[in-house]
């Protein structure tokens, strides 16, 4: 009997909004899926597309990227820059065959602990339905560098 599939999801979040939102979810004792590994960064503007590729390279089944709502950025416009970058990068992933359903973007403020918990649950559920990212994991296997997630 094989164990049921539990997706590995990497979340890149900005420290001022989404990380604080995750904190709020925690302090409010909200339950959410344990499948997510959170990486805290200073700003969504700091999230290079390389991070997304690296997460996939290390065997993630899905990636979540989240930060402050437009207009709320601690650095005034980091998330505006990030938004453009994501739009282009998302199109690129789509064109090269990585389903955009595996890479999710969202805005979650420090006050939205509930939204954070809901989002993690729904993203986990969606990726669980998509199944493991076999195509990519096959490529990782070829490189003989085992996933370390």
């Amino acid at each position: 009997m094989s164990e049921p599939f539990e997706p590995k999801i990497v979340a890149f979040v900005c420290t001022y909004c989404t990380y604080a939102g995750a904190d709020l979810a925690g302090t409010s004792r909200l339950k959410y899926a344990p499948n997510v590994r959170i990486v805290r960064l200073p700003c969504t503007g700091r999230i290079s597309p390389m991070f997304i590729l690296k997460a996939l390279q290390k065997g993630a089944d899905g990636v979540l990227i989240s930060g402050c709502h437009p207009g709320d950025c601690h650095f005034t416009h980091g998330n505006y820059h990030a938004r453009r970058r994501w739009m282009v990068f998302r199109a690129l992933l789509d064109f090269t065959g990585i389903s955009p359903e595996r890479v999710k973007f969202s805005w979650i403020s420090a006050a939205e602990g509930g939204k954070f918990a809901d989002l993690i649950n729904s993203v986990t559920e969606e990726i669980r339905n998509l199944g493991p990212f076999d195509q990519y994991q096959q490529l990782i296997k070829e490189t003989e560098s085992p996933a370390t997630l």
Binding site: G71, R83, R84, V88, R90, F105
Partner: peptide
């Protein structure tokens, strides 16, 4: 350069 600039009303239909 397009990725070094932004507009406040850039599309964001894909953001949850």
């Amino acid at each position: 350069p397009v990725l070094a600039s932004f507009k406040k009303d850039d599309t964001e239909t894909f953001i949850l």
